[in-house]
Every structure is written in C-alpha cells, then in structure tokens.
Simulated assay, not measured.
Amino acid sequence: MNDDRKIRDGVTDFGFDEVPVAEKAARVRDVFDSVARNYDRMNDLMSLGVHRIWKDALMDWLLPRPSQRLLDVAGGTGDIARRWRRRGGGPVTVCDINAEMIGVGRDRLAQAGGDAGIDWVVGDAEALPLADRSVERVTIAFGLRNVTRIDAALAEMRRVLKPGGRFLCLEFSRPTQPWLDPVYDAYSFRVLPWLGRVVAKDEDAYRYLAESIRRFPDQQELCERMRRAGFEKVAWRNLSAGIAAIHSGWRL
C-alpha cells in the first residue's frame, strides 16, 4: 500500500509497523525524548563520524550568505544551524517538534558562548510557525522520514520560502551498489540497535530509526514528490554510494 493510500485509510508507517495517523507524531516525540541527550554522540558512533562529512557537503551545496535567513526544520540540537553560521550564513530559526531536543541544543549553544543569530522554536513540519515567503533557505537533515505526512511537510517548506528560495534535504537513501545491501542490512538491524541499547539505553528507538530508513522514498521518488509539492529545478546528489543523499529544489 502506498503512502497516500495508507493516509487515506487512517494509518501510516512507524518503522515496519503501521500505526494510526494521529499517533505517529507522539511516538516520534517519545523516541527523540529518549535519545536527545545522547543523540549527537550516537550520530558519531553510528556513522563513524561520516555524518559530519555529509553535513559539510550539504553546506557546500547550500552556499550560505549573510543576507540569507535559514529555517532548519527538524533541526534538533542545532548541528546544521551552527554549521550555517560558521560558514557565514545569516540568521537561523531551528524548528523541531521535540522540545527535549531543542532544549539540548539551546543549552549546548549557551555553554559554547551563545549566538544571537540562532533562535529556537518548537513546531511541526506539517504546520510551520512561520509566515509565507519569509526565508531564503530551508533545510531538513535526517528528519523528513520521521514526518507523518511527507507531502504536507514539503508543501509547508515551499510555502515559507521566498521566490528564488532554495530547499535542501539531507536524508538516508538507497545504496547504489548491490554488494552494499547485506552489509548495510546487518549493520542497520544488528549493530545500530546494539549501540542504542549500550549507549543511549534505548534499543527500540534505534531499531525504529533503522526501519524508518527502509520505509523512506528512494532518490527518484523523493524528487517526484518534491515536484508535486511545487519545487522546481529538482535534483539530487548521492553521498557514500547512496547511503545518504541530498535533494535540492527551488521556489521560482
């Protein structure tokens, strides 16, 4: 059953399970409440630090400018926002549905000396608390797969972009090399839950995160959904043989 049909039937994916549409956001909040304090450390362990290279590649394609305001959706602990600011970008709004993640990010930024150019807001990707045509750039990194209605979130991110604005999504995707599949599966479904149990004290959360990657649209499908949401000049770049990908679209 495709995503649209599931939503019409009142259910959606939560990892490999199906849950009522009305329950998914709360379940996702529970997952990230549980892992918030260990989230950045787990990212380093899970990817052996490669997520930093992927996020730097996102910035390379984004080309931050002081005149541009960024909205980072599902911005969590502010990793993308801090990179944007270090690269010379203008003000940033970090928006995340999870107050615990926002709290961790705000506290860490304060401990590092703060940055008046970053503000934080708890908000839903499907109903962003920003005005129409209010920002020049929108990003979402490793967050779109946790959204209940992906198409609604894409439409919202386009809504808040100014004409000429750009959207970039960094997300896990489909490996392009068949030999990677068994290795990737073993790592995802054995190693990640084990790391979750040992480090974050929540094996189920990291099993869900591995499963959610498999349920996420592949590179071509995400491009098509971005076009249906109104983005133009849609393109993608694979990272690490397609384990992750960056998708780009413009509001013209």
Rank of each mutant, 00 (worst) to 15 (best):
K6F: 01
G10E: 08
T12A: 10
D13M: 07
F14T: 08
F14E: 08
G15P: 10
V21E: 11
V28C: 07
V28G: 03
A36R: 03
D40E: 13
N43P: 03
M46A: 13
V50F: 14
K55D: 15
L58N: 03
W61Q: 12
P64M: 05
R65T: 09
V73L: 02
A74V: 02
G76E: 00
G76I: 00
D79W: 03
W84N: 05
R85H: 07
P91H: 10
V94M: 11
D96H: 05
I97Q: 14
I97A: 15
I97F: 14
N98A: 08
N98P: 06
A99W: 04
A99R: 15
M101D: 06
G103E: 14
V104L: 06
R106Q: 14
R106W: 06
D107V: 03
Q111V: 05
Q111Y: 01
Q111G: 08
Q111L: 11
G114R: 07
G117Y: 02
V121W: 00
V121T: 14
G123L: 06
E126M: 14
A127M: 08
P129H: 06
P129Y: 01
P129A: 10
V135Q: 04
E136G: 08
T139G: 02
I140G: 02
I140A: 11
G143L: 02
R145C: 13
R145K: 15
V147M: 12
R149M: 07
R149F: 12
E156F: 01
E156Q: 13
R158Q: 11
R158W: 01
R159Y: 11
G165I: 00
R166W: 03
C169I: 15
L170A: 01
F172A: 02
R174F: 09
T176Y: 02
Q177T: 12
Q177V: 13
P178K: 07
W179P: 02
W179S: 10
L180T: 07
V183I: 15
D185G: 09
A186F: 15
R190E: 12
R190N: 15
V191Y: 04
P193T: 03
W194V: 05
G196I: 00
R197K: 15
V199Y: 01
R207H: 11
Y208S: 10
R215K: 15
F216A: 06
P217M: 12
Q219V: 04
R228S: 14
R228G: 05
A229G: 11
E232M: 11
A235M: 13
R237A: 10
N238V: 00
L239H: 06
A241V: 04
A241W: 13
A244K: 01
A245Q: 03
I246Y: 03
G249V: 05
G249Y: 01
R251G: 00
